[in-house]
Structures are given as structure tokens and as C-alpha cells.
Nucleic acid binder design. Structure first.
Length: 946
RNA sequence: GCUCGAGUGGUGGAAUUGGUAGACACGUUGGACUUAAAAUCCAAUGGGUAGUAAUGCCCGUACGGGUUCAAGUCCCGUCUCGAGUACCA
């Protein structure tokens, strides 16, 4: 064999690996462990494009390298297979999501197998498989059976809380709960009936039912989490989202806020992801301040049962003497109570107007200032001054207490509000408490050394010199406040009104939720006739007539074997992130039928050494999985506090599209005078700023179009009376003139064509100018490149090398198939090194010093590059090595044997083939990675002029 | 608006962390081979300029300053692009 035949080689070794289980990881080993994990994919109907495997290739290179260097490597793969698209497809076609999911998985597997990954497929998992979600349901029960002890700062079993209640009531308890809960003694607790006790406990559990304002998406028929909404519309599909009160399962992630924040410091993640999570958690340190209301109002207004005061949260208690008014959110519960008769009409009108505005409108016009005076006054806790109380929609009901003390001199929004209503009844003049600062134009919000004035005991202090602490101390002294830390992070809504998700292991008895006994799990997803919600608004599971172990329609017998009692089941399903929040542990013991994973397996593999995936999950998956792992840790289920020690976020591979800026063409056969546009993307944005004239035609650009043009998309644009009779090269663009441009009439596609010389010379008056642009690869943009095609034409090794060669892993970069020939050329040259004209030809003689130098230079570089995840420069160094060795006519075993191992993580198929040609019977994955030796590099030390 | 990150040839990108900028590859141009094409191989390729030539000189890492023997790299200011976030008190 002389020619490099990638097809035969790759098939051969892929079969060999599969048959020999080459990459199966052992749960016991003398070697140190290494766990490399990719974010598992959602198997969509579109299959993989060249962007998907990028991260998998990187993790595969590291995994193979780690095997070569003596590690026991776990490198698994699976599917996050519950989710919306399969269900929406089901709603449209009636096709069962399980079937489409199965087909899609088969296709994904086929595509991945062709790329030659060293995955341990014996550990494959699917989140939609009952064997798997059985344990997702179990974790839900664990959450239900836990509460958060703020004193121990950990989650604890609910039974321990019950014990405390029995012994001492609520006196010694500091728990993360919904709101300020009522206090009781041990005697009280023991006198409560069971129903009452259960209701109380529900407020303490880490997953609980709550009537909350949720993001309801009517078009999708479900509730969405905050991170599933982008700019006020659903992330998936872009449908409007409205606020609605619903009874939902919630996850008490807020209890873990501080740990989720502080543990970020110990993670080897990119600073940007950590920063996103920090912002999302949104810690602010400040204090609560209580303002007494002037006059007497009916009791029972707010949570603490006292309607005579307003509590606010502030991060600037040091500006307490700058307060000139207060603002409540329009939804604040005190509004109706304190509004005076004269202001009643105005307040009602304002409340009505704000509630009519959708979330989207409110967000879209944050600039508009609106509000109204309630007529009521509060009293300044320190000076006793009368402080008018306003309402305004710049105050959010959901953050802090839904009320603020307004300090116009120190807060931009308060400043704007005060100015807007200046002179009106109830709006005092702005008071300046900052020495030598002009606040007439804008507020002074900096937290610096600026001295405070007009502030009694705070005079002369500054934010930096401890004014805040002094203010808090004083407030505590007079009983009007205390230090407090607030988090932006809210509890996560866990219910989805959908079919294709994990069923909750829950039934309801006397209106209170009960967990289905673990011995009955999994509670399997039942069959339904349709995947839409029922007419009465129940989720799709309301249509189920048969559940795996239920006795009657939608009903279960109770756990206490009271077979005469039947209870309704929970009909919601879990959100997409449920299954993905713990999957990294299931891989450790994926086929365990008795428990989610054995503690031995977890203790051996600990957690993930290297996690590779996109950064788009920063506030979703990556936060939720950290939350669940902390829970599992607190309950003694796992030994680690964090799931992913190190993470690399690979950048997106973009598709390349061509856009016409402007074309002027006169065509003999056409009535249209001009304005033909050309490009390769149907979904075109146009830029008209680059108009060129007759003289300005850039033939280089034209030629590039010719090369970049992809003929398979042409048919999308050809219409019946097309003009493409004699064109050698042509490209047509459907184009909407009116798209986002003013003063341009709408218009449609036309045609332009080239001959071999670029622009058709016969049609002299056709002018075009265009540019290319990288954009996200997607079916609708006609710029998708399928890895199968690349494997067919160039082989998997070339694909792997090229994806790495493209640029730094973490960076977004455009795909250009034309460039792959360089890497393919390298593969052929590599092959040639081991062959002469007729056959395999490697000699045992000692290699030349030059060759040894080339080899060791490359060993050093390859090791460093893999350790630093700098795969692109590593590929370059291979190319240099092969060029040099070719020039040196090197075919010595001592060099070529090492070279094969060096490239093996990147191009495993050819490496295996060469390894076997070199006479080895074992897989190259058993080979030790070459060790760099300094002595072969004789570098002259550089001198520099002084 | 705020918070990060980034600006290097026609293109993707290198530069051992302050030490000959543009490695490697694409593209382009010229050449060899071929009836021809493909494939392969060789050479040139940041810009300008002088010379028949070998070769030489000048300018060049978004822009303007600065530190240094030496700056793509460090400091100050400006501009542009990308990402995240958005009334969080």
C-alpha cells in the first residue's frame, strides 16, 4: 500500500476500538484518574454540523494524551434527551417524542463514531431513559426531604428539623425559608395535627410548592425560568412572556447563594463565566432600615404583621440623612392601606396603568419616569423628619422588600425621579449630603472617600472610611435597622406544563404533596393520545389514562398501603435542567441498577477534571448542577463540593455567508434596469454603504466569490423564468430591499452570473461588490457544513486536525472548507514519511542529529500545547516537523515511532495504522508518550545590543 | 448605561510573556509535470522605495502619547468591535 487511504484506515480502526473495548474505563486502577467530560448534546433532528464536535475533539485529544501519559481516563458521552423540540415536533406530527429522540440519537451516534472519539460507550446515558430518570426523581425526593440550616450552613434531612420542632420549637432554628414564618414552641408543635405540621414543613423544604409570579409563555403553554427568557421573549421561539400567578414547584437555590458565590474562587474556570455567575447571584451588602409611618393604619399589612412601618433594603445606609422621600413598588401590599383619600383615584389609576404593561414594555422603556404620591408620610428613623411616600414602577416588587428609601443626591434613579416631580405636592427639594460635590445635574453614586456632610454623627466620614458601619450601628441602637446581605438570585421554578420531561414522583393527599415511595420508582412517563394541554388547561399528562403502577386513572394508592384511598398525581414535569444537573456522577457507575452510583465509584472518580462546553449555560446548567452537587454533598451522597474543577468554553464555529453590498446590472433580457444582488445567504442583511462604480470592480473579490460559492444552494433561488441559460458560475440571492432600511423600496431577487474569468465580460455593465460575513451555522441560513461530508472526502483525522488548526479553542471562528487542503496535504506527507515509492519503508539506523532535534522540539511543543489547550499551534508544529523530516529524508524508526505517538491524540486512525505497520500488535493507545530530552536541542543563546 | 474580552497581511491565525513581527496554513501570482484537467512538486507573496542584479533603505501590530538599550506585548488617553447584564436600591 502506498497511497494514504483514509477511508479504509479509519473504518478498520474504528471497528477495532469498538470490538476490543479499547477505551472502556475501569473503576479500579493503580493509575491516577482523569475524568474528561463534554457537555452532552441534545439530539436534535438536524444532526451534527462541524461546530458540534469541536469541543469533543479537544477533550478527546486530552483524554488520549492522558492515557499515553499513564492516567486511567474516564471519557464518556450521552444525551440530554428530554426537551422542547422533540415535543413540539410531536405536537405537529403526532410522532411520539421517544421515537424521534431514538432516531436522532442513532444519527448522532453514527456521526460521532465516524470521527473516531475515544468515548467509553459502555457508559452511555440518556436522561429520558427510565433507568436514568429514576434517580432524577430520587434526587427530587431528597430535596423534598431536606431543609437548609443557616447555622450549620448546609442542607440537612427534614427529620432533623422535625426533631428540633418537637424538642424546642422554632427557638433555635435559623433556616432558609419562604418568608418570615411564624414562631412556635415545642408544646405548640406537638399540639398541631399532622396536616398542620406538614403545611409548616413545606415552607422549609428545599423543594416546595408556592404561588409565585411566574413567566408564563402562552404560545409554548408553559412556565419558563428567568434564564430561559431573553429580552422579554422566550429563548426558544421568541414568544411573548407574561407574568402570572401559579402554584409551582420551586427549588430553594437561594439558600446556597453564598456558597455558590464564594466557591467560584476555587474553580479553574474562565473569569468571564465566573463573573456572569457572580452577577447572576448578585450579592449586595447593606442593611435593612425601618421607617415608621405617620399616623395609624390597620394592622396586618405586611409580613411581620405590623402595618405601621415600611422596611427597606439599602446598600448605602451611610446616606440615610440624604433621604427625601420613599418609593414603593406599585404592587407593594402597603399601597392600598396607606393611600390617603385625596390620592386614592390617582394611585388606583397608576396601579392599573402599570399592571397593564407587559414585562417587555416595562423593560423596553426604562427611561420613562412615572409615579404618584400616596399622600402618606413616614418618619425618618434618626431625624424624625416627615418623609413623603410615593409609588413608582422603577422599584421592583421582587427585589429586597419592594420599597426603597430615596436618596436623590446619591442615586441616579432617585435623582431623576425627584427632578421629574420637583415642585409637586409631596416632593421635597433634593438634599445634598456630599461635601464639595455638585449634585444639581446628576447624583453622586461613587463609593469613595468623598466626605459626608449635613448628616449629624456621620459628618466627616466617607463610604470608604466606615460610614456604612457607623450608620448600621446607630440604626441598630435605635432599633430601626440591622445589617443585611441581599442576593439577586431567586428560587428556581421547577414545574413545566409539558409532556416530554421527567414526571414528578408526587401525589396529593388532602391537598398536600406526598412523595411516592422510592421502591416504586421510576414513575414512568405514561402514554398520551396528544401532547397538548387538555381543554381545561391541565398539562399533557392530564390525558394519561394509564400509569405504570397506578390503580386508577391518574391516581395512585398511597404509600401506606391504604388501598382504598386513591390520590391524584402531580401532572407537571421537570424542566430540562433536571437531568443534566447530576449526570456527571452517573457516568461513574452508569449501569448500576440499585443506586444512582456507588460511593466507591464516586470516591474514586471524585469529580470532573476537565469539562468542555459552550459558555451559554453560565446561568443555567452550570449553576444548577453546582447547586445539586452541594446538596448531594451535604447529604453525604458525594465527597465533592463542586462538579467541575476545570472548564474550557469552546467558541462557536461560524458559517460563512456572502453578502452583496450593491450591484448594478443592465441585462438585455430583463426589464429591470439595475440593482441585482448577489450572495450565498438567503437570509441576507444588506449593507449599502459600499457602492462601487464601473472603475471599482474588484476582481479579487469576484474570484473569491466564485470559490466560496456553494452550488448546492442555488436551487433555492431559481425561479421559473430564470435567466441562467448560459452561466458557468452563478449565484442568486433572494433579497428584501426593505429589510431594516429606510427609504428603500421592497424588491426581490435577481440574478447575476460569472464565466471563468470572473464577471461575464460580455455583460459589461454589471457591477457588483460584496463581502463575506461569519454568522451562526444554521439550516435556515444555508451555511451548514456536515462533518460526514468532510470525513468522506478528507477523513476523520483531517477533520480533527483541521478543527483544531482553525484557531484557539475558546474563540469563535468561521469555518472555511477551502482551507482544509493544507491539513490534508500534511496527512499525505506524514504517510509518505513512512513509505517509499512502493512500500512501507522504515529503517533501524540511528537518525541524524537534525532529525532528533526536530523530533524533540516537537515533543516539547506538543506536551506544552496539550497541557495549555493550545491545540492550533500544536498542529502547526506537526506540519513543521513533517516538512523538516521530509527535507531531511528521515525514515529512521527511532524518530518515526515517536512521531506516530505524538500525533496519535490528534489523528488516532493514521497513528494506529502506522503503529501497526511499525510492527506493534497492541493499540497505539497503550504506548507511552515520548519524553523530551534537552540534549537534542542545541540552541545558540541569543545576545542583544545594549 | 455598567462589567468583562478583543483589535496583527487579501484570509484563519503565530510570536518562547519585553528580545529579528507576520511562524504554520489558506488564497493569489509565476514555474515544472500533463494532450488536457485533477493531483503533486518548486518559487514569490505586509506596504513603499533604489538598483540589471546580489542587495539596501524607509514605514508598518486600531489611533495619540509615554516608559525602556529594546514595546504587538507594560503605562495613560481615544476609537471600534464582540460577549454578558440591565431600573437589583
Amino acid at each position: 500500500m502506498l497511497l494514504y487511504d483514509h477511508k479504509e484506515i479509519e473504518k478498520k480502526w474504528q471497528n477495532y476500538w469498538a470490538e476490543n473495548g479499547t477505551f472502556q474505563a475501569q473503576n479500579h486502577s493503580e493509575k491516577p484518574k482523569f475524568y474528561a467530560l463534554d457537555m452532552f448534546p441534545y439530539p436534535s433532528g438536524a444532526g451534527l454540523h462541524v461546530g458540534h464536535p469541536l469541543g469533543y475533539i479537544a477533550s478527546d485529544i486530552v483524554s488520549r494524551y492522558k492515557r499515553h501519559t499513564g492516567f486511567n481516563v474516564l471519557h464518556p458521552m450521552g444525551y440530554d434527551s428530554f426537551g422542547l423540540p422533540a415535543e413540539q415536533y410531536a405536537i405537529q406530527t403526532g410522532q411520539h417524542p421517544a421515537i424521534t429522540t431514538k432516531d436522532n440519537i442513532a444519527r448522532y451516534r453514527e456521526q460521532m463514531d465516524r470521527i473516531g472519539f475515544s468515548f467509553d460507550w459502555s457508559r452511555e446515558i440518556k436522561t429520558s431513559s427510565p433507568d436514568y430518570y429514576k434517580y432524577t426523581q430520587e434526587i427530587f425526593i431528597m430535596l423534598f426531604d431536606s431543609w437548609y440550616d443557616n447555622i450549620a450552613d448546609k442542607a440537612r434531612p427534614i427529620s432533623e428539623l422535625e426533631f428540633c420542632f418537637r424538642e424546642s420549637g422554632t427557638t433555635s432554628i435559623n433556616a432558609a425559608t419562604n418568608e418570615d414564618l411564624r414562631q412556635f414552641t415545642a408544646a405548640d408543635w406537638n399540639s398541631f395535627i399532622e396536616q398542620e405540621q406538614r403545611e409548616i414543613l413545606l415552607d422549609y423544604r428545599l423543594t416546595f410548592l408556592a404561588d409565585t409570579e411566574v413567566n408564563w409563555c402562552p404560545a409554548l403553554g408553559t412556565v419558563l425560568a428567568n434564564d430561559e427568557i431573553v429580552n422579554g421573549v422566550s429563548e426558544r421561539g421568541g414568544h411573548p412572556v407574561v407574568r402570572k400567578k401559579m402554584r409551582q414547584w420551586m427549588m430553594r437555590i437561594s439558600a446556597f447563594a453564598e456558597r455558590l458565590l464564594s466557591d467560584l474562587d476555587g474553580l479553574d474556570w474562565s473569569e468571564s463565566i465566573k463573573e456572569i455567575q457572580r452577577n447572576w447571584i448578585g450579592k449586595s451588602i447593606g442593611s435593612m432600615v425601618t421607617f415608621k409611618l405617620e399616623g395609624n393604619f390597620p394592622l396586618g399589612g405586611n409580613a411581620a404583621g405590623n402595618g405601621n412601618k415600611i422596611d427597606v433594603f439599602t446598600t448605602r445606609p451611610d446616606t440615610i440623612y440624604g433621604v427625601t422621600f420613599m418609593t414603593l413598588a406599585p404592587e407593594h401590599e402597603l399601597v392600598d392601606i396607606i393611600t390617603t383619600a385625596e390620592q386614592k383615584a390617582a394611585v388606583e389609576a397608576y396601579k392599573k396603568a402599570t399592571s397593564a404593561r407587559s414585562e417587555r414594555e416595562r423593560m423596553a422603556d426604562v427611561k420613562t419616569i412615572s409615579g404618584v404620591f400616596t399622600g402618606a408620610y413616614a418618619l425618618h428613623p434618626l431625624s424624625g423628619e416627615k418623609i413623603p411616600v410615593w409609588i413608582g414602577d422603577y422599584v421592583l416588587a421582587g427585589y429586597g422588600t419592594g420599597a426603597v428609601m430615596a436618596v436623590p443626591c446619591g442615586d441616579e434613579r432617585d435623582h431623576a425621579f425627584a427632578n421629574y416631580f420637583a415642585g409637586q405636592n409631596g416632593m421635597p427639594e433634593i438634599k445634598n449630603i456630599f461635601k464639595d460635590v455638585d449634585i444639581s445635574e446628576e447624583a453622586y453614586a461613587a463609593k469613595d472617600d468623598t466626605k459626608i456632610t449635613n448628616s449629624e454623627f456621620l459628618n466627616g466620614m466617607s463610604y470608604k472610611s466606615g460610614a456604612m458601619t457607623a450608620a448600621i450601628e446607630k440604626l441598630e441602637e435605635v432599633g430601626a435597622g440591622k445589617g443585611k446581605t441581599n442576593y439577586r438570585l431567586r428560587d428556581a421554578v421547577f414545574s413545566r406544563q409539558r409532556y416530554w420531561g421527567e414526571p414528578f414522583p408526587v401525589y396529593y393527599k388532602d391537598g398536600l404533596p406526598q412523595m411516592i415511595d422510592r421502591k416504586h420508582l421510576p414513575l414512568e412517563l405514561p402514554e398520551v393520545d396528544e401532547y397538548l394541554p387538555t381543554e381545561d388547561g391541565a398539562p399533557p399528562l392530564g390525558r394519561a389514562t394509564y400509569w405504570s403502577w397506578c390503580t386508577q386513572e391518574n391516581k395512585v394508592v398511597s404509600n401506606d398501603d391504604d388501598r382504598d384511598c386513591v390520590y391524584p398525581l402531580e401532572l407537571n414535569t421537570m424542566p430540562g435542567w433536571a437531568g443534566s444537573s447530576w449526570y456527571m456522577f452517573r457516568y461513574m457507575d452508569a449501569n448500576n441498577e440499585n443506586e444512582m452510583f456507588s460511593s466507591e465509584a464516586q470516591e474514586y472518580w471524585e469529580n470532573v477534571n476537565l469539562y468542555i462546553g459552550g459558555s451559554e449555560h453560565a446561568t443555567g446548567h452550570l449553576l444548577y448542577s453546582r447547586f445539586w452537587v452541594k446538596l448531594l454533598h451535604d447529604l453525604g451522597k458525594v465527597t465533592v463540593n463542586e462538579p467541575f474543577k476545570k472548564m474550557i468554553n469552546q467558541g462557536m464555529i461560524l458559517g460563512e455567508s456572502f453578502f452583496a453590498d450593491k450591484i448594478e446590472v443592465k441585462m438585455a433580457s430583463s426589464n429591470s434596469e439595475n440593482n441585482l444582488f448577489l450572495g450565498c445567504s438567503v437570509d441576507s442583511k444588506i449593507k449599502v454603504d459600499n457602492v462601487i462604480t464601473h472603475e471599482g470592480i474588484d476582481y479579487t473579490v469576484l474570484n473569491r466569490i466564485k470559490n466560496g460559492y456553494r452550488i448546492e444552494f442555488a436551487h433555492n433561488y431559481v425561479n421559473s423564468d430564470n435567466l441562467l441559460t448560459s452561466a458557468d458560475y452563478y449565484s442568486i440571492l433572494k433579497f428584501d430591499f426593505g429589510y431594516g432600511k429606510e427609504g428603500v423600496d421592497g424588491g426581490l431577487a435577481n440574478i447575476v452570473w460569472f464565466d471563468d474569468n470572473g464577471l461575464d465580460e460580455k455583460a459589461e455593465d454589471r457591477y457588483i461588490f460584496l463581502h463575506r460575513e461569519a454568522e451562526k451555522m444554521s439550516k435556515s441560513k444555508y451555511n451548514v457544513v456536515n462533518p460526514d461530508d468532510i470525513c468522506d472526502q478528507y477523513g476523520a483525522d483531517t477533520l480533527r486536525l483541521y478543527e483544531m488548526f482553525l484557531g484557539p479553542l475558546e474563540q469563535a471562528k468561521p469555518w472555511n472548507t477551502a482551507g482544509i487542503t493544507g491539513v490534508y496535504g500534511f496527512m499525505k506527507k506524514l504517510w509518505k514519511l513512512y513509505h517509499d515509492e512502493n512500500s512501507f519503508n522504515v529503517i533501524d539506523e540511528k537518525a541524524s542529529p537534525d532529525s532528533m532535534k526536530t523530533l524533540h522540539k516537537t515533543i516539547k511543543k506538543t506536551r506544552e500545547d496539550i497541557e495549555n489547550f493550545s491545540f492550533n499551534t500544536s498542529v502547526s508544529s506537526f506540519m513543521i516537523a513533517v516538512n523538516e523530516l521530509t527535507a531531511q529524508k528521515c525514515n529512521n524508526r527511532e524518530v518515526l515511532e515517536s512521531l506516530a505517538v505524538l500525533v496519535s491524540p490528534y489523528a488516532p486512525h493514521i497513528a494506529e495504522e502506522l503503529w501497526s505497520l511499525l510492527g506493534h500488535s497492541e493499540s497505539i493507545s497503550e504506548a507511552a508518550f515520548p519524553v523530551f530530552e534537552e540534549k537534542y536541542l542545541v540552541e545558540s543563546s541569543k545576545t542583544y545590543p545594549i
